[in-house]
Each structure stands twice: as structure tokens, then as C-alpha cells.
Design a protein around this nucleic acid. Structure first.
Length: 553
RNA sequence: GCGCCUGUAGCUCAGUUGGAUAGAGCAACGGACUUCUAAUCCGUAGGUCAGAGGUUCGAAUCCUCUCAGGCGUACCA
């Protein structure tokens, strides 16, 4: 609908430029928006004000010329007003609005999808937590955002891949092995001081216990490095399996798990380092190998290989992103915790140095989540083992509430997750408000089915819906496809959460003021079509957030 | 010190990328169930958009400075 008005406006502008009424300009500036108040029509354009200084004529006069030229489209536009400093307000012919419902019905689950990103391969990489411990609440936000963003991009027509990068190489994995071995020895009375940097969570003791069930006390006799290896391998495998199970119960799905160690076994790290050296992008200094990231906007050069000969985290990460580029992704979206924001310039530099367009890389930074229980902040730290796991959150408040809470804020705004609030099954909880709207509709549809009213609704005369709350509902349904596109274009999934509230509100208001099933047969049929469309859109939008749409509550 | 994010109603947050009288939810107050689910609806009240300058027809939005909170500033990951 919006596009229709926009193209009409552009066409009119072109004609007026041709006639010399207004000076030449790019047609792109002719955009149409939904006004803040219903009194300003269905759509509005500020084009006359934008053109005013260029045309050296008052905006209202230009608006008048545009209005006169557009009034011939009476089949689409009911009325055109000029308001305020020079806004052009369009009132759409109600019979056109009503047609949206045919569209919703015909498209069903695909209503809201588009070809916006057609033909473009994008990758979203998220969570990517080290397999050194269970996922905690901070990972939960990244998981919900990443998974939802992937769903939104797919709905907008992109060819999307969701990927998890497993950091299964490096020092923290040895610390994990050492931590488990230490607890294992404890079980057999060997009291060796626990490593200062070790992981202290109870899950480490569980892993040690399970290891003892498999190996008995055999690991005590092994050489320490071999025993650490055994512990490490076992622990990371078990933990990764648990992470996958947690993600599954959170309705988060990945197309691909990418192992860091594969970069080594396929010699990709080596190849990348060679590549950088051959292009003179790296150099030796002070016994270390440096990458000239400062030539690409970073504030200083970065170390690839340390003095002790081992590689930094950065080195394989460059190889990893080179691999992403080689896989043909037009957009590479990394979802990171905001505490990693200092890492963005060097990754961008790396992308550019690798010869890719630096704008193809987006680091989406997710701000911190702090947990509040009974009004008090819950302290968390992975190393000390004091953290609330994602699994605990899901068990406590449910998957749907947890996902919605993570998705209802802009990513760059810090999130206070109030556990007591999340558990309340009341007005304070927006998730139930939205799901309740869906359940209510299902209930009405079931009633209608019992009365045999659903048989010939496709022939319903929808023109009876052209007023009041019925029309408001239709207009809200009509904005859904645009909302999905804007979320995909701006990488802002929270807008779907707000859209759902808006649609649920419009429905509840409609419900309280009107009856769907009434003595008026024509109106009943039309309204059954209407609420089924609302049900469909609620269900589609909830699916983007990975939240269930219950048929009864 | 430098860099990034945030600051909007008592609380939690939106604000379509510069547009019209700044909006929701919760909390407060007052109403609505003989009716398809009251986990709902309607009404009232609530604001120096942290502060000060600037840019222009027009600023919560863009620029500069100040203040406050968070994060970062590794040859850690």
C-alpha cells in the first residue's frame, strides 16, 4: 500500500518536473510515511517542504500543485489534504484497505515475507561460546537475538546461514582440562591446590565424577599432559553437547557448527598468515609477528604471533573470516557481547585487508544483561562459577517469556532481567498479552466452526469492515510486511516485539467493543475473515521471535 | 587520558533515521463481566527528551562542549 502511494507520488513529481512546475530533483527523496495521528490521514509526505528551498516557493504552494495533479487517482486516494507547514496527507479508499485481507488469507504463513534480500547470501554468527561451561544468561540474549535475526532475514528473502564458532583451541581449553583433572584427583584423595585461573563451577566436579566412572583411577597413573588431554577432550565434548541441548530447548537452531580446530587441520591459519606476509601486511618486531591493521583504520597494529611463538586469538579469527568471505556471503553479521566492542576496528581492518568490501561486515553488539531477583542484582562470573545459567532461566520462566524479554529491547540498550516480573502471569507480562490475543481468536474460530459458520467465508463481503476498529485492525495488519523488511534492513529485531504489542492491542480493543459472531450474517462472515487474518499475522510474527502461539490459555 | 554505548513520565522502554500536539506498558486514581476467554477494555493524571550552545522552515533525533552510568583501551580469550 505504502509503495503504491510512493510510486504514484514519484510519477506525479516526474510529470511536474517535465512541465516545469518544480525544478529537477532525484525522485528518491519522495517518500511517504505513516503520520503520528489518525487525523493526518493514512499516509503523509513532506516532499513539498523538502523541495521548497530548491524551488524558491512556499511549501504549501508546491503541495497544492502536487495535490491537484494527484486528485485524478480517485480510485485509490479518497482525499488529499494539505496541512501544517506543507504536509500532504493522503486518505486511502477504504475498499482498498479491505483487500489486504485477501492477501493475508492467500499467503497464509508466508504473509510478511518478501523478496527484499533475494539472491543475497548472508551469514549470522552468534553465541559462539567456548565449550568451557554452560551457557549463561548473557549468552541467552545473544542466542535469542541471533536466532530471531536469522529468521527475519530469511523472511525478507535472504539466503541465511546461522553459524556457531566453537573456540576449541587454545589456553582456556587447557585450563578446562586442568580444572577437571584437579577435581578428579580430589575424588581419590589427592589434595592438590586448585589452579588459580581454573573454572570453579560445580559442573567441573560432575565432569570429574563421570570421568572416574569411565576410567576408574587410571588417569592418576598417566602422565599429566596426557591426563589433561583426556579430561579436556571429554569435558569439552560433554559441555558442547549440553550447550546444544540448551539451545534446542530455547528454540535456537544453527545450520552449521564451525570448529576453530578445523582451521588448523585444514592449514587455513597458516595460509592466511602466508597471505598477509606476501601482501606485506605483516612484519616481525620485538620477536613477535604484527599485522598492519593501523593502515586500515585501527588505532595500532596488532600481534598475530606472540614472542613465545604461540598465536593470538586474532590470528585464527582472521582465517575464520577469510573462510566466511570465501564461502560467498554478501553480508557477514557477527553478534558479540558489547564488552568486545574494542575488537571491532581490528576485525574491520582485517576484512578490508583481505580484499573484501568492509561494509559487508557488521558487528552487532549486544549490551550486558543484569539479572535481578527480589529487587537485588545477582552477581555473576564464569571463572568463579557464580552464574545463572540459561537453562535455569528457561526452567524458571519458560522459553517464550525468556525469549521475549531478551528481544523487547534495542540491542544497544542494557537489559535488566527481572526474574520475579518474568514469572508473573499478569498484566505486567507482555508475552501473555500477545499470546492471549491469539488464544482468544482461536476460541472464537472454534465457536464459529461449531456453528458451521466457516464454510463459505471466502465469499464474504468485506466492504462492511470499512469503519471503526475493524479498519484500524486491517491497517495494522497491512504494516506487517514493511516492519519485517525494516527489521532486516536495519538489523533491529526488537521492532517485531513492539509490532506484536501493537497488533494485540488493536485486537483486544476491537474485541471489547464489537462482537464477531452476531445476528448480522454478512458482518459475521466478514469479521471471521478479519480475525483469522489477525491470527495469521500474530502467529507469523511470533514465529519470527521463536515464541509459541497457543490456541488456548 | 582516549574510544564505544546509554541518559525520554515515579519504574521499564518505544520513537519509522530531521517532521505535525514526544508515545506505550507497569505503578496511581476512577469506571466496564447475565454477552464469542476480565491473562481484557475505557477514562484521568503524569515531561525543561540529563544540561548548555550551534546547524535550519523544523531537532528527542545531526555537530560541539559539560555532567552521570556502563564497557573497552593486552604479545587474554
Amino acid at each position: 500500500m505504502k509503495e503504491k502511494i510512493e510510486s504514484l507520488l514519484k510519477q506525479t513529481l516526474e510529470d511536474l518536473i517535465h512541465e516545469g512546475v518544480i525544478p529537477p530533483c532525484e525522485l528518491d527523496i519522495a517518500s511517504v510515511s505513516i503520520p503520528p495521528d489518525k487525523g493526518f490521514g493514512d499516509f503523509a509526505s513532506n516532499i513539498a517542504m523538502v523541495l521548497a528551498s530548491r524551488a524558491k516557493r512556499p511549501p504549501r504552494q508546491i503541495a497544492g500543485a502536487i495535490k491537484d495533479a494527484m486528485e485524478c487517482h480517485a480510485d485509490i486516494i479518497d482525499r488529499i489534504d494539505i496541512a501544517g507547514p506543507g504536509f500532504i496527507n493522503f486518505y486511502i479508499n477504504p475498499s482498498l484497505w479491505v483487500n489486504i485481507l485477501h492477501d493475508t488469507h492467500a499467503k497464509g504463513k508466508t504473509y510478511g515475507t518478501s523478496t527484499f534480500g533475494a539472491g543475497k547470501k548472508v551469514q549470522v554468527e552468534f553465541v559462539s561460546a567456548n565449550p568451557t561451561g554452560p551457557l549463561h544468561i548473557g549468552h541467552g540474549r545473544g542466542a535469542a537475538v541471533g536466532d530471531t535475526l536469522a529468521r527475519i532475514l530469511a523472511a525478507a528473502g535472504f539466503d541465511v546461514e546461522a553459524e556457531y564458532y566453537i573456540n576449541d583451541v587454545g589456553n582456556q581449553m587447557n585450563i578446562l582440562g586442568l580444572s577437571v583433572l584437579s577435581r578428579y584427583r580430589d575424588l581419590f584423595g589427592q589434595n592438590i591446590p586448585f589452579p588459580a585461573t581454573g573454572y570453579k563451577g560445580d559442573y567441573i566436579r560432575d565432569l570429574a565424577r563421570r570421568l572416574s566412572e569411565i576410567h576408574g583411577k587410571n588417569l592418576l597413573d598417566e602422565e599429566e599432559s596426557a591426563a589433561i588431554q583426556t579430561c579436556r577432550k571429554f569435558a569439552s565434548q560433554v559441555i558442547l553437547d549440553e550447550i546444544k541441548a540448551d539451545l534446542d530447548s530455547f528454540n535456537v537452531h544453527f545450520d552449521h557448527y564451525f570448529s576453530e580446530s578445523s582451521l588448523y587441520s585444514n592449514h587455513k591459519v597458516e595460509a592466511t598468515l602466508d597471505d598477509l606476509r606476501d601482501k606485506d601486511l605483516s612484519y616481525e618486531e620485538d620477536g613477535a609477528l604484527w599485522f598492519r591493521t593501523s593502515s586500515f583504520g585501527d588505532e595500532k597494529d596488532r600481534v598475530l604471533r606472540k614472542q613465545d611463538g604461540s598465536l593470538t586469538y586474532f590470528a585464527p579469527d582472521i582465517a575464520y573470516h577469510k573462510d566466511k568471505i570465501d564461502r560467498g556471503f554478501r553480508q557477514i553479521i557477527d553478534i558479540w557481547g558489547a564488552d568486545h566492542h574494542g575488537y571491532v576496528p581490528r576485525m574491520k581492518a582485517a576484512i578490508e585487508a583481505l580484499g573484501a568490501d568492509k561494509d559487508c561486515f557488521h558487528a552487532l553488539l549486544i549490551q550486558l544483561v543484569s539479572l535481578v531477583r527480589q529487587g537485588k542484582p545477582v552477581q555473576m562470573s564464569t571463572r568463579s562459577g557464580e552464574f545463572v545459567t540459561l537453562k535455569e532461566i528457561i526452567d524458571e520462566v519458560g522459553k517464550d517469556v525468556a525469549r521475549y524479554f531478551f528481544l523487547m529491547r534495542r540491542c544497544d540498550s542494557q537489559l535488566i532481567f527481572d526474574l520475579d516480573l518474568a514469572k508473573k502471569k499478569s498484566d505486567e507480562n507482555p508475552v501473555y498479552y500477545i499470546q492471549y490475543a491469539h488464544a482468544r481468536i482461536c476460541s472464537i474460530l472454534a465457536n464459529a466452526a461449531d456453528q458451521g459458520l466457516l464454510s463459505d467465508v471466502t465469499q464474504a463481503d468485506l466492504s462492511v469492515l470499512a469503519t471503526g476498529e475493524d479498519l484500524e485492525l486491517i491497517k495494522t495488519i497491512a504494516t506487517y510486511p514493511d516492519t519485517v523488511v525494516s527489521c532486516a534492513a536495519d538489523l533491529e529485531p526488537h521492532r517485531i516485539a513492539f509490532y506484536l504489542l501493537e497488533l494485540a492491542t488493536a485486537f483486544h480493543r476491537f474485541y471489547n467493543k464489537n462482537r464477531v459472531i452476531s445476528d448480522d450474517g454478512r458482518l459475521t462472515k466478514a469479521r471471521l475473515v478479519l480475525i483469522d487474518a489477525v491470527r495469521q499475522v500474530l502467529s507469523n510474527a511470533l514465529a519470527l521471535l521463536g515464541i509459541d502461539a497457543p490456541e488456548s490459555m
